[in-house]
Amino acid sequence: MSLPLLDIRGLAVTIPTRDGEQAAVSNVDFTIDRGEVVGLVGESGSGKSLSMLAVMGLLPRHLHVSGSIRFDGVEICGAPERQMRSLRGRRIAMVFQDPMTALNPVKTIGAQISEMIRLHNPKLGRAEVKERALALLESVAIPAPERRFDQYPHEFSGGMRQRVVIAIAIANDPELLIADEPTTALDVTIQAQIMEIFARLRAERGMAVVLITHDLGLVAGLADRMSVLYAGRVAERGPVGPVFTAPRHPYTAGLLAAVPSIDDVAERLYAIPGTPPSLGARPPGCAFAPRCDFAVPLCRMSEPALLRFGSAVVACHRAEELSLGDLPRKEA
């Protein structure tokens, strides 16, 4: 077996608070191979974005990161800024969630794309940079790139801005693309276009994509494998097919049940009751237990370990006995 492109082991991110260090992410393992698309799923605050910002080395200084992050076999957790800078934008690129705020409002679109090219190809001439930038705009289906080049972000629609953000991210043919909720802010038709771009890039350039999202439909359509995070820990991880058809963690099952289906229109939408624990208010035992329909006393006492079940890995005490394939859809 070849080395994974990105291999995260035992990742922890702690945030200093008045009540001491609180773990926002703990003991997260995550791997992705070249050309693979892996979905990273969970509610807001589950630690998806934090984990990936840790990979980029972009977390605020006061957060403490520990564990091992190997990129292409090289340890980059706590690597010096100089080393990280040569990776960022060149080998690992990131697409941000909100296209309305990810572009610098006072720089032209052209300048922002060119910057990405020039930062990692300092020897390239002005004309060559512009040529490549225009080609990138074209590749993400921005019409009239010549004219658009000198415009500012506020002259672009949300969908176009997100495509610009993607164009910037793929400018240097990165091996790994971290897409943080790349379509959350967009309407469905644009969403489909963006997903198409990702699929094409993966096919054409062998780019690996980490798809951070809470949209399971996106994961189903694009990803090979998925990891479900809950309260900063891995709840379930495995190939998309088996996890979708036979989830073993009640949280995964709940997320799947929360996806609205086109068949039952009359039914009220299902929502997992309760909210994730806030930082520092983590219950003992399984963090999901207070919201779980299947919790037994054991769940509230000891934290379940990640164990392998078939092709998936699950952190649930009752994973073996529960069959959640067709989750009892409850009348809310």
């Binding site: 910002l53 980029m56 972009l58 800024e81 800078r85 040569s86 990776l87 960022r88 934008g89 060149r90 690129a93 990131m94 941000f96 969630q97 909100d98 705020t101 990810a102 572009l103 610098n104 409002p105 910057e115 990405m116 930062l119 990692h120 953000v165 910037i168």
Partner: peptide, 15 residues
């Protein structure tokens, strides 16, 4: 604290 600053850093720009 804005996103485009994180984005600029994610591009590999120096401090």
């Amino acid at each position: 604290g804005q996103d485009y600053i994180t984005m600029a850093r994610a591009k590999g720009a120096g401090r």
